[in-house]
Write a protein that binds this DNA or RNA. Sequence first.
DNA 1: AGGATTATTATGTGCAGACATATTAATTTC
DNA 2: GAAATTAATATGTCTGCACATAATAATCCT
Lengths: 236, 236
Amino acid sequence: MSKEGKADSSVSWQSIRDTMMARIRAQDYAPGELIPNEVDLAAEFGCARATVNRALRDLATSGFLDRRRKAGTRVREAPRRKATLAIPLTRADVIASGARYEYRLLERKLDTPPPLVREHLKLSGSERLLRVQSLHLADDVPHMFEDRWIVLDTVPDIEDVDLTETSANEWLVRQAPYTHGTMEFFAETAGARGQHLVCAPDDPVMTMIRVTWLEAAPITLVQQSYSPSHRMRLDL
Amino acid sequence: MSKEGKADSSVSWQSIRDTMMARIRAQDYAPGELIPNEVDLAAEFGCARATVNRALRDLATSGFLDRRRKAGTRVREAPRRKATLAIPLTRADVIASGARYEYRLLERKLDTPPPLVREHLKLSGSERLLRVQSLHLADDVPHMFEDRWIVLDTVPDIEDVDLTETSANEWLVRQAPYTHGTMEFFAETAGARGQHLVCAPDDPVMTMIRVTWLEAAPITLVQQSYSPSHRMRLDL
DNA sequence: AGGATTATTATGTGCAGACATATTAATTTC
DNA sequence: GAAATTAATATGTCTGCACATAATAATCCT
């Protein structure tokens, strides 16, 4: 009983968020229904409207509330909850799992892309492309096979980088920030990659294709195939 | 030339965020380095500190900046960009893709879970479980096969729901909000599910296992296997 | 010198007030 | 009665100020 002079007299936006979240869960506010407006809630909680605003804004970006000016705030009927999937940084992910990480450059050469890659990267045909294939291991076991195409017109500097030590991904993440991109996940058979991933050609593997852009200029397309035993885990 | 009296005199937090983002991209602030503090930036932009704070906070949650009290704000060396993966609401997803959605209940019965399911849900053994298998179609083509276990002790109400019309997922999303959960993605062979997904037993399919909880009580475990042609797409 | 104590500083957050903006509701006009 | 105008309202955001908090830097004491 000592320092309840000031800080305790005001209410934190987190506590309001938690209280409102509990009410939504308990269906004190029915799904689809309007909740009290910010002024009323501020009066109820005994705080400024800005504090309520911060709490409700947070719940809205988390997908539990829908807010519109004048129309008010209502509880989402089917809360669209999202898991955040961080773009894989294989080295960090492997080390975080407690395993020893190793990277092996398999091939690096200027190459002509197949039609599918050209289409993904929206290439005109005159661009120079660097193709890099590599293998990432966890505790000496093959973890992921990577086949990458890099548009040298967009990131010319990478042509002089030694990719035997640093993976292309790590260099690009640091040196070539992208503005946007897309990811695709699907299952397919290992095929020839089974050789690198130490599995049969008809074993199922999870493959991710990622394309990144710097505004309108394509940077890289990478296809990563994970070892059959790998599972991608996400928290909700 | 009319209404530049007031609104224009203040700077929006979005414009500050965009300016700072451009500087990070252009490496005006080097990776790993401190950027000016909020007071200085506010002076530069001619706005209140709170406005700068909002902009920088946004960039921090997007993964481009690291902020610590007293230590200041610095540019992340390897920005950990995240894609938000919304939990699949199959009906909405199929319809959004422009296809006709159809749902078929295949089986619904009280059943005893195999050890793997029991382990995932941390069951003691005394719980009653409802097992629901269903097929979701897009334009009359099998899209996803679902095998679900529902813990009736946690959501007793679902025992009386007619699951021939409404899928268990849609009911649960609306009626049984969860506090947290996990998702796992991996590739496997279709096996017996090939019968429902109209593919060979050794065709590779992408499977997701999702477990959700209401505090410490398990709600449901669902295993969804997608048609071999399906690709999960995300924007970055 | 080493360790404990005391400033100092940058971010985090709260408040009251003001105006902006998007919508919806009410009202007027034809 | 339909269309156009006007009013009302809830959220969005900015300002200026104050104090809280965490972490570092400086200082003091032995």
